[in-house]
Design a protein around this nucleic acid. Structure first.
Lengths: 344, 344
DNA sequence: TTGTATGCGTTATCAG
DNA sequence: CTGATAACGCATACAA
C-alpha cells in the first residue's frame, strides 16, 4: 500500500479528494502562495512571466478558489434568500424577476426556495436557508410567533403580511383594490355578487385585511344586499376556481358576478362559466385579483385588480437593504390598480 | 470627536460596524468561545445553565454565525447556480421548480440568475455566479469557445445544447418532437405548412438540430411540397408570434397550418388568427412546442409538442451530481411528446 | 463540563 | 517584484 497517492487522480484511495488550494498551485509553480493569489486576482505587481506560469499550473491542477475562504476575508458578496410557496404559481415568476433584477443591480445574489405549500417545509426552509444568507424575503404562512424559533436573527422581509410584525414588510393595498373592483361591478349593474375564496390551512385571519374580509366590508359599505352575497371557498388553483364557481352557481343561480380570490382562481371560474354555456360577462361577470398576464389570454380577457409584482420584488430588496444597513425602513405598501378587460 | 464609540450601537462612528463573533458572545457570557460554539451547535457536552446563559448573550448581541467561516471548516453545503434567459418566460418556472426541488432533496441550494436575453449579461453572469457556486446550470446562448474564458473551471451543465460540448448536457429530442408534430399535421390533411421561427442574435445554427432545421428535414422526409413551405422569423414573444403569423398569412394566404418555434410564439399566432377572423383549426391549424400549461387556456386549446420541463430540471441536477463526484455521466436526452388539443 | 491550540483557504500588510 | 506572516470566524481534537 502506497503511503500517499501524491495528489494524482488515482481514484483508488479512500481519501476524500482534498481540495486543491493556493498552496498546491504555488508548489507546482515553484512560487509562494501569495504570488499565486496575485496572479489569480490579476494584481499588478507581478512579473508577466511568473504570472503565466502560475496560471498554467492553476489550470493544470483545476484549481478553483474557495468562495468560503474568500468570503471570510472580504465579506462583500451579499446573498438574499427568497422563499415562495410554489415557483409554478404564475404569481411568483414576475415577482422573482423583480427581486432578482433589483438584487443583480446591487451585485447581490438570490437563492430561491420553494415550500410547495407545505407549512413544515416552510419552517425548515426559513431555518436552513436563513443560515446561508444575509437576509430572507418570504411569502410566509406562519405568524411571527411561530416563525420566531426558526428565524434565528436573520433579517427578514415578509411579503403580503397584514398583521403587525417586527420584520420588514411589503404589503399590498388589498382593501383599495377590492373596493375599486366591487365598485366597478356595481357600476356595471351587478347587485348579486359572489366570492370564490381560498382556504387557508389555519384560518387565522385575525385582522380584517384579507381579501375576504375586505370583500365583506366593501359590500356593506356600498349598501349591497348582504343576504345576496355569497362566499364559497376552494383550493388556490384553476380547478379550485372551477369547483367554486360550480358550487356558487348551483346554490345561487342568480349570482350575476363573481369576485375570485385571485386570477388563478378566476381563470377556473371563467372556464367553468363558459363550460356551463354562460356568456361572460353578460350572464356572469368574472373579476380576478393579481393582474397576471395570462389573464389576457382568456376570451374574453380577464378583468382584474392588478398588482405590480415586479415592483413588489424591488420593494422587497429595498427593505432588505434597509435592514442590512440599519436604516429604519417603513413598511412598504403596494398600490393596486383595476384593469378592466373583457370579463366584466 | 470621541475616540471610539466602544461598540455601542452609536451610529456616529465611522468605523464599519465589525461583525459580532463567537468571541464577543463568549466574553459577554463569561465563557470561552469554544463553549459558545457548543451551545450554538447544540452539542451535548455542556451544562444546561451555561448553555442558556450563552444563548441569551448571543441573542442579546444579535450574533449570527458566519456562513463563510462555517463553510470553510465544514464544506458541506452545496450551492448550484441556475442561469436562465428570462424568469418571466413561462418556459422557465416549471423547469426551475424541477431544479429547485431536486436540489432541495439533496440539501443543496439554488441561486438563480437571469440574463434578460442580453448576451454580455450572460457572460458576466457565468463568471460572477460561477465564482460563488459549486456548479452551474445554464441556458446559454454562447458557444463553448466563447464561454471558455468566463467559465474558469466551474462544473457546467448546458441545457438544450445540441453542439458537441465538453460540459454536462441536458438536451431535448427536438427532432422526434418535430417529426411527430408535422406528421400529425399531415394526417390532418395539411400540405401547406408554414413555420414561425425565432431569430437568434447570432444565427450560428451549425448543426441540423434546431427546430428550424428539423422542420425542414422532416418536411422533406415526408415528401411535402417544399416550395409551399414557408418560414418567417420574429422575436420570441407573443407579439412576435402575432407579427409572424400576419406576415406569413399575407405572403401566403393559402397556408393551412403553422408550426411555431414554441408555445409562446404559437399563442401569438393563435391570437392573430382569431383576430383575422380565422377559425382555428379549420381555417388554419396552430402547432406549438414546449407544452406550456397556459396553452390550455386558449380557445381552442393549443396542440403542442410537450417537454417535461420539471424532469429536465431534475436531469440537470443529476448531471451536476455526476460532475461533482467525478462520475462520468452521459449527456441526457429528454424525450418529447405530442399533445393534441384543439388547435389542430 | 470547559478551555487551549490548531487549521480551514484566502487576502492584506509589510518586509525583503 | 516576491515572500513571510498575520488575520478572517468557526469547529474540532486534545488537554485540563
Amino acid at each position: 500500500m502506497t503511503k500517499q497517492q501524491h495528489g494524482a487522480a488515482g481514484s483508488a484511495g479512500s481519501e476524500p479528494p482534498r481540495r486543491v488550494t493556493l498552496r498546491d498551485v504555488a508548489q507546482a509553480a515553484g512560487v509562494s502562495h501569495q504570488t499565486v493569489s496575485r496572479a489569480i486576482n490579476d494584481k499588478g505587481e507581478i512579473d508577466p512571466e511568473t504570472r503565466r506560469r502560475v496560471l498554467d499550473a492553476a489550470r493544470e491542477l483545476r484549481y478553483r478558489p474557495s468562495r468560503f475562504a474568500r468570503g471570510l476575508v472580504r465579506p462583500d458578496t451579499i446573498t438574499v434568500g427568497l422563499i415562495v410557496q410554489d415557483v409554478v404559481n404564475p404569481f411568483y415568476p414576475e415577482l422573482m424577476a423583480g427581486v432578482i433584477e433589483a438584487a443583480e443591480n446591487k451585485g447581490w445574489q438570490v437563492v430561491v426556495g420553494s415550500t410547495q405549500n407545505d407549512r413544515d417545509n416552510e419552517l425548515a426552509l426559513v431555518r436552513s436557508l436563513g443560515r446561508q444568507v444575509d437576509a430572507l424575503i418570504g411569502f410566509l404562512d406562519h405568524s411571527d410567533a411561530e416563525l420566531a424559533p426558526y428565524v434565528e436573527g436573520v433579517p427578514l422581509v415578509v411579503m403580503d403580511r397584514h398583521q403587525k410584525t417586527s420584520h420588514g414588510v411589503v404589503d399590498i393595498d388589498i382593501e383599495t383594490g377590492v373596493r375599486h373592483g366591487i365598485q366597478h361591478l356595481v357600476e356595471r349593474g351587478h347587485q348579486k355578487i359572489g366570492m370564490i375564496d381560498c382556504l387557508r390551512e389555519d384560518g387565522q385571519s385575525e385582522d380584517g385585511l384579507e381579501r375576504r374580509d375586505c370583500f365583506l366590508a366593501v359590500v356593506e359599505e356600498l349598501g349591497l344586499p348582504v343576504d345576496q352575497t355569497w362566499i364559497v371557498a376552494g383550493t388556490e388553483s384553476v380547478a379550485g376556481g372551477e369547483a367554486g364557481f360550480a358550487e356558487l352557481r348551483s346554490k345561487h343561480p342568480d349570482v350575476s358576478a363573481v369576485f375570485a380570490y385571485n386570477d388563478v382562481v378566476a381563470i377556473g371560474a371563467h372556464r367553468a362559466a363558459r363550460r356551463l354555456g354562460l356568456d361572460v360577462p353578460k350572464d356572469c361577470a368574472v373579476l380576478g385579483f393579481d393582474g397576471l398576464s395570462i389573464g389576457e389570454l382568456l376570451d374574453p380577457p380577464l378583468t382584474t385588480v392588478h398588482i405590480d409584482k415586479r415592483r413588489m420584488g424591488e420593494l422587497a430588496i429595498d427593505q432588505v437593504d434597509g435592514l442590512l444597513n440599519g436604516t429604519p425602513v417603513e413598511h412598504a405598501l403596494l398600490p393596486t390598480e383595476l384593469v378592466v378587460r373583457g370579463s366584466t
